[in-house]
Design a protein around this nucleic acid. Structure first.
Lengths: 202, 202
DNA sequence: GCTTGATTTGACCAACTGGTCAAAGCAACG
DNA sequence: CGTTGCTTTGACCAGTTGGTCAAATCAAGC
């Protein structure tokens, strides 16, 4: 969309490698904590070569964040007013949890940005995200009103879905420290099902 | 405990100012993203003066993290096997939520550390935290077994309490972007009450 | 094999980083 | 007062940072 498509095959390969490397490092150390040298090494390129493909450290970060936001909000778009309410919401939970399992670095990149006050995406949050959430909140409120699900605050329901699913990616280290070797995800899925079923069906 | 008490009044004042400033900056930018100059300015001290009170940037960070861990685990200690199960758990939720409201920077400092792989506290998580959690998990499992609360996975219950309460501090910016000016906390408290009551009372 | 444009790199730079140090300022006590 | 020990600071340093640039390398069409 925003990104002009890379032309040659080698450009595409290197840009991809840089973004992949950037994701790896930014998601762990945040923007300020990350150095171009780290990214360059992770991408197996020289630092000046990085800057041949991207004008600055900031540009890499921005592009990652932009690509991320689409992916991140996508599952919420799918929440369908005409589907079965409980199924719709639980499906959303499952999709979000799967994203935490399959794309934990993306989740951490996002978490880092928010923790730092979201300097680069605050406007998107205040406009696009807010609008989308309000829209879906209305859907949920409608379900409640029609007695399809228990009365719940739709915004806090949304927050709780985000918090719980992303926790397994963002706090992965802590979860594993407490759980030992055991894979958290099967248990998480069952628990979240139980938890949200509990609040949705009175 | 670990920290030898400062002697003079001026020492105490400056050490406190430095820790306060460090908390402010570390909690926003993480360890690597924070500079001594930032801390010095926030504490209204010169950089060499900082280093008169603390031997290094790392020392400030470590001391903050140590003090934090105690406070952080404290509410969990209070979970009492002999109290009323639902009340005990909901009280824990309320205490944790209050901490997010009253000490958001502490929550973010912790989040930053975990996000970066918990390099400085991984061992504490794997020993002290794990042991404490296992202990309380046994209590909860006991309550379930005796039919006092619904059968739940105690570890994931714990994770969900942490995730939900800390979300309001760590993702504060996002929450406020979505909610507008409205204070999230009264709503959060009511919602969390409803959510956990739902899963605990079948 | 030569030219042309895309790609890569070594050398370099100014600003910033965490940290040092010797000297200066200061308070209080005799 | 003068001395003594705590406190503060300006000047400084070596290493790192994001970023530049001219020159070298490379690939591909002619």
């Amino acid at each position: 969309m925003t990104t002009p498509a890379p032309r040659t095959r080698i450009q595409e390969k290197n840009r991809t490698a840089i973004l992949e490397a950037g994701l790896e490092v930014f998601s762990q150390y945040g923007f300020r904590g990350t150095t171009l040298d780290q990214i360059a090494e992770a991408a197996s390129l020289s630092k000046p070569n990085l800057l041949y493909y991207f004008p600055s450290k900031e540009a890499i970060h921005t592009e990652l964040l932009q690509g991320l936001l689409e992916t991140w909000l996508d599952p919420l778009h799918a929440l369908d007013n005409d589907g079965d309410p409980v199924t719709e919401i639980l499906d959303y939970v499952h999709r979000k949890l799967a994203m935490s399992r399959d794309f934990p670095r993306e989740s951490r990149l996002f978490a880092n940005e928010i923790l730092q006050g979201a300097p680069r995406i605050l406007d998107v949050l205040q406009t696009d995200l807010r609008q989308l959430v309000d829209e879906k909140a209305a859907v949920i409120r409608g379900w409640s009103a029609r007695g399809k699900i228990a009365p719940v605050d739709p915004h806090h329901l949304m927050f709780s879905i985000w918090a719980l699913t992303q926790h397994y990616a963002d706090f992965d280290v802590q979860v594993r420290a407490v759980l030992g070797e055991k894979d958290p995800f099967p248990g998480a899925e069952a628990y979240l099902d139980q938890l949200f079923r509990g609040i949705l069906t009175t």
